[in-house]
Write a protein that binds this DNA or RNA. Sequence first.
DNA 1: AACGCTTTCGGTAGCGTTTCCAGTATATTG
DNA 2: CAATATACTGGAAACGCTACCGAAAGCGTT
Lengths: 340, 340
Amino acid sequence: MSKPATITDVARLAGVSITTVSRILNNKPDVAQATRQRVLDAIQQLNFTPHVQAQRLAAGKSQSIAVLYPSDSLGFTELEFEFFVGASQVATKAGFLFNLIVTPMNEQTLLNLYRSNQVDGVILMEVHLNDRRVAVLRERGYPFVLIGRCTENTGLSTIDLDFETAMLLACEHLYSLGHRHIGFTNLIGARAGYGPAIRSLWGYQRACEQFGIEPIYRELKPTIDELYRATEALLDEQPGMTAMITLHTGPLVGAIRAAQNRGLCVPDQFSIVGILSDQMAQFISPPLTAISFPAQLMGSRAAQMLIRKLQDADYEDKQVLLKPRLVIRDSTAPARTSER
Amino acid sequence: MSKPATITDVARLAGVSITTVSRILNNKPDVAQATRQRVLDAIQQLNFTPHVQAQRLAAGKSQSIAVLYPSDSLGFTELEFEFFVGASQVATKAGFLFNLIVTPMNEQTLLNLYRSNQVDGVILMEVHLNDRRVAVLRERGYPFVLIGRCTENTGLSTIDLDFETAMLLACEHLYSLGHRHIGFTNLIGARAGYGPAIRSLWGYQRACEQFGIEPIYRELKPTIDELYRATEALLDEQPGMTAMITLHTGPLVGAIRAAQNRGLCVPDQFSIVGILSDQMAQFISPPLTAISFPAQLMGSRAAQMLIRKLQDADYEDKQVLLKPRLVIRDSTAPARTSER
DNA sequence: AACGCTTTCGGTAGCGTTTCCAGTATATTG
DNA sequence: CAATATACTGGAAACGCTACCGAAAGCGTT
């Protein structure tokens, strides 16, 4: 574990000043081709790698970004993971360090992240319509992007799935299959200001109006048990219900099991549409008809936006809204005319 | 985005030298109670947070660890994710930055990670029995720990699940339910030196000997399709097979579907045992009897070991082998005496 | 021959900490 | 009461790099 070579060693070996070496390291102009080669050889020979802490201290930048996913929220499924992988890949490629922070942060610790130069910018997940974190960061002018949206998004960089359209698509699909009684179990938090919940509800309500069907609605916590019980309850109360949409990702099996336990075969007697990543949808039996959740894409786009924002002083903030895509698999089927 | 306060500002405001402030920041002794309070007040008042890059440069430590998960290997499931979360939580709590690196690294870039002071130590995942990375790092004396094991582990810090015992447990469970023809689909790579595959195979072979049953064995890639086809093939070739164990985590549904497609109800006519995290096992229909894979625990233990190794000069390397636990759910049932 | 331009390079002052060493005042000891 | 230990504090040199500024050298222009 001998001490690694420093820029001084390289300079000495190449017979130049450290300034020149620094120029080459940072691809600055004003250096003769011959000198450049000599320095590169020296670097090679010494196995030199610049000391990142020193670089960052001198440059006044941390060259790293973080994703904040407060783990007290919904827990982890593959979906969150796909966000991280997407962001991580982009960051690494752009020469940024990627930090995943799952510990919930208060305002202080959030600001300290910037003040201590730990990160140049962050990606916020699980944002609420009226998110304190957003207010605090915006006020201080610290760079960040949101996965999700707030009520007021001007001047913010956001990326989000268009949940409203997603619900429309799902309803439309089921309606066209002949279903006229379509339930919807939403994530909890529509009242508390949780974006996906609210916007999904809007979409569902609009679809119901448009198709002239009666809403059958529940909000519940994301556990298998909750969804199981809720599905049972809905089936009891709404004997005509032949299909269901749920925003719950992992716990979705609860709905399938509840239906099957009633002797309702999915999809022949009961159709289910979810919102999941393609991989997750395939890992379920039966393979799920679902709005495809492009989590990895969203993660990488978010990282791209953030990094461009950091590098390009007059980068213009954008609010990206991804068009949802419905992938039809084996959990939806035409409604039987003579129902149950 | 005004410039954050520095240690000099704090020192000036408190009327002390920066040395004293530094002492307090690092909980060093030799500072009067009154002075400490005065400085703490100043820190509070200025919202001061030490500049991490500067701290690390001066201290010669990066205070960060990384997990290397080469994404070209098996892809991502919830399982990998749980590793990361476990490690990340421990790291954050210990004041370490946590870096997730999914880009595959060659020897050079791996070493550069240390040389450039980006990390103090790493956690290696997906290690092979004869892993180049291990050789390189060991030779240089760079700190690391393994999730998994090598052939020769003396002087290494490792943590691994006892796959051999795991297979014994699974077989035992099925045997005691009356199954006498038990298939096993393994991850690919037993020959190439992939630890889990090899050790599972050993366990399976031992169990077969012990219970006097005939091995029914396949190695395949971790995709749903592969597992589906393999299960079909096994059912064709081995009409007596009433149960199956698989090391494939996510794609496991392929086996379930294949059985169900044959009209074999799981578990009444066909039993399946997997190796999954508890959460994943519950997300499958039917809830899966499985060896519980304590991924999060393993991640956090690995991080703990690494950090202790970094902080404690004479820390003794340990090879931890976690005892597996079988959780019985609804995918296994007694073998029917009059089979198919 | 004097001037200015371009290209290429080096000197050096930071960046914000930690840490070693030396110093002062106070307390303890024989 | 001198001598020595003890508690506390400050000065200044690193840590390894970037970035500003200025200088030297080569070349064409007037």
